[in-house]
Structures are given as structure tokens and as C-alpha cells.
Amino acid sequence: MKILILGSNEDIHAAHLKQSLTEKGITVEYLDTRLFPTQLKISWQPINHTGYLTFPDGRQWDLTDINKIFWRTFSGVNVPQLADSYQQTIAVNDATGLLRSFMRCTPEKWVNGWEAYEFHKEKPLQLSLANKIGVTIPATLVTNDAQEIINFSQSYLDVIFKPVYGGSHTQLLTKEHLEINRMNLALSISPVTIQEYIPGTNIRSYVIGEKVYSAEIRSSSLDFREDKRAKLIYLETPEDIKRQCLAITKAFGLKWTGIDWRFKPNGDFIFLEANFSPMFLHFERETGCPITEDLIELLTS
């Protein structure tokens, strides 16, 4: 059995999974796309769908011999800097075109795959799809129109804002943020996601295949990612929420995910987002949930 991990040993989750698989006698290598096309070689034939990976040390893997590929981190291609910017663009596009074709030609092998990766980047669509399948989401506005933000903020007691794409922490919207010149300047640079503030605590649910594990994240911070003292308390996942977790995972084209909820004092779960390649080691250590073993099972079944 041969398994690839998209990423490198610089990522502790990738390194942990590689070590765990290796200890079970499974052959594992990193697919570090930063080495392509300078050191990593890829060949693919569209007619018969055959292909090869040749690693920097000369070892070659046949595409048909690769059982699964685990998507941890994707760094794109790494084309040497050329003096001619036009040739640089051509080189990057050519390298990206082959790499993406190689990554997409066997979608059944990926945990998770390219289409799910692309969908993950469209967070407003993610919320919309969750709502369409019957999952409760916060009242949300995505816009670069200052007046729309003012109108929306007047409809709720408290409102939060965060980037459309992600990558930064959630903040409460204040009167200072609503100053019109400040808003117009910020919104001329990028749109923003505005949501009603949901009182309660945070819940993280992991889905691996058909298994679901949840924990309450106890933190005094608005965004628990800022709180290094946040506590994880294992939570038996209610059956209706488990069904929603599995439905979200399927609808989003995922084979595994980490789903973030807001847990209201009245017991309602409000969906926030589903993570395409979530970190899991801290959750596993704090709760004892066997995420590593379940991932191994998913990758080897």
C-alpha cells in the first residue's frame, strides 16, 4: 500500500500522520508541490490515464499504485524566477496546469479532493448550501456597500465581522467601525462578512467517514483561536446534529472535516463553517477521540 500526503514534514499534522502510517508498515511519501517542477517530476497521459511521480531521489511511483492521497497543505508550484515576466507567466501556468490535472485525474483517491478545496474557499456559498440542506446559519451579509452594513447592523443587538475568505479573527462591530469614511475606505479595498452575534459557546465536530466527535470549546474570547487557554470538553454529539454533520460533509464533497458551531444557551446549534483540512492533534489529545486511527482507517480502506 502506498499513500501520499500533500504537504511536508514542516507541518506537524502531516508529520504525525506520516509517522503513524509508517509505524503500521504502510509506505508513505510527501507530495510537496514546492519541489515542482524543479525537483519533483510528473508525467501523465490523458488517453490511458497513466502517470508517474518521480521524487527528487529518483524513486518513481506509478499513479495506479497510489492508494490514497491525504490533503494537508497545498503550496502551489515553485517556478524559478525568470527575467522575462511573460515567460514567467507561461511557465507558472504550464506547471500549474499539469499539477492540477494530475491532482484531479483520480478524485476517488483524495481525502479531500480538488473540487471540495475550491468550494471551501467560497465561504458565502458554503453557508448558502448548508442553509439549503436544512442547517441553521447566522443571519449573514457579505458586501462592500457601507449603507447595507449600516442597515444590517441596526437589525441586531450585536454584530460581528470577519473576512470573506478567512485568515483573520472575528471581531465585534463597533460604532468606530461604522464611521462612514473609515468604512468606505476599507470596503473599497475588500468586501467583508457581517453576521448577527450568536450568544453561547463554540462547538467543534470532527467527521471522519461515518464517525462524528464533538467537543465544547470553553473560552472567554470572541474568537477561540485567539485564546491559548481555551478548554476542550468532550460532548456526546446529539443524534440530530450528527445527522447534520454527515449531511454537511456529503453536500460539501468532503470525506473528513472539522465543523464549527455556535451552541446557544437554549440548546440550538448554529453552523459557522466546515474546515477542508482541519488541525486535529490538540483536539485528539484533549478529548481522547481516536482521530488519527480513524484517518488511518479512512486512508487504508
Rank of each mutant, 00 (worst) to 15 (best):
M1L: 04
K2C: 09
I5C: 05
N9Q: 13
E10D: 14
D11T: 09
A14Y: 14
A14D: 05
H16I: 08
I26P: 07
F36E: 03
L40P: 00
I42T: 04
H49M: 04
H49S: 10
W71H: 15
R72K: 14
S75A: 15
V77H: 13
V79N: 07
L82K: 03
T89G: 10
V92H: 09
M103P: 00
T106Y: 14
P107H: 02
E115T: 10
E115K: 07
A116V: 01
F119V: 06
N131M: 06
V135H: 03
D145E: 02
Q147I: 01
Q154Y: 08
Q154P: 02
K162A: 02
P163K: 03
Y165H: 12
G166V: 09
Q171P: 05
E176V: 13
L178R: 00
I180E: 00
M183H: 00
G209H: 03
V212H: 08
D227A: 15
R229Y: 13
A230S: 15
P238D: 04
D240M: 08
L246W: 01
A247F: 01
A247D: 08
K250C: 09
A251T: 11
F263T: 05
G267K: 10
G267F: 12
I270W: 14
L272P: 09
S277E: 08
S277N: 12
H282Q: 12
E284H: 11
E293P: 06
I296P: 05
